[in-house]
Design a protein around this nucleic acid. Structure first.
Length: 262
DNA sequence: ATGGCCAGAGAATCTGGA
């Protein structure tokens, strides 16, 4: 089974590229982040016309997550247990969706950005990650042989090799000790980064800023991951980052990440 | 080829991204 994750940065602006990518990637399951549209604006036909079922969750022009699958899409769940909200109303945002695809519970996750160290959004990010860890750990506590794939844009560069220059990130989010500790806590709960062993660094990234010629200058970040539970991790056959998809006019600023499971 | 931001809302810039 081929599972991919991709922050598309607007599903409507990227509809043609996403369709073309599905055609050539041969992905069975695609976890999508940053839809940037409401449910009634979601272009379902991009997926249904190609034989995929699709579940999506979008509330406004921000965030939004979806899962497309051609190997079953069962028990669709929006959010997760005790997912925190943000803002004056504490509204829960559209940052998580999951479904069972061919026996694997696949999550599509768009972790809050954090904005700046000390910003309320940063505390929100850490709370959100802790709630995700508790949800995932609780599932594995019931059955540690469950196949779970936590896919998405984690907005964390876990290691110094995951950014082009640590000096450029002095005092920034994405590389702070608490964020990296939150990411490590997810791994400690029973998950493996199944992509890194197949895409060793340094200089291997999943995101390049639109500004400052970041992509041609190879100034990127590795912030998109597939974290697999132990039972699923053991089935990893190969993984890759589709850097080609970042090229050309109309590309997302993130590249798709693909994993093949036996 | 891989090139000095992009998308959405809404109607001039502003929010958010990272």
């Amino acid at each position: 089974m081929r599972i991919a994750t991709w922050n598309v940065n607007s599903i409507r602006a990227r509809a043609d590229r996403v369709g073309a990518w599905l055609d050539r990637s041969d992905a069975d399951v695609l976890a999508i982040q940053e839809l940037k549209c409401k449910d009634d604006q979601f272009p379902e036909e991009v997926f249904t016309s190609r034989g995929y079922q699709v579940a999506f969750h979008g509330l406004n022009q921000w965030n939004g997550v979806a899962i497309a699958s051609r190997v079953g899409l069962d028990d669709v769940t929006f959010g997760f247990e005790d997912v925190p909200g943000f803002g004056e109303e504490g509204d829960v945002e559209a940052r998580a969706i999951s479904a069972v695809c061919d026996g694997v519970r696949v999550y599509s996750l768009y972790v809050p950005n954090g904005r700046d160290l000390g910003h309320p959004h940063y505390e929100y990010k850490l709370r959100w990650l802790e709630a995700l860890r508790l949800d995932a750990a609780a599932q594995l506590a019931g059955d540690d042989e469950l196949g779970i794939a936590l896919c998405g844009d984690f907005n964390i560069a876990p290691h110094d090799d995951d950014v082009w220059d640590m000096a450029a990130f002095e005092g920034s989010t994405h590389v702070s000790v608490p964020e990296r500790a939150a990411f490590q806590s997810l791994l400690d709960a029973g998950f493996d980064d199944v992509v890194r062993p197949h895409t060793p660094g340094p200089g291997v990234y999943t995101y390049w800023d639109y500004t400052q010629l970041s992509f041609p200058k190879k100034r990127g970040m590795r912030i998109d991951f597939v974290l697999a539970s132990s039972a699923l991790s053991r089935r990893t056959a190969s993984a890759r980052i589709d850097r080609e998809e970042r090229k050309g006019k109309g590309a997302s600023d993130h590249a798709p990440v693909i994993v093949d499971f036996s």
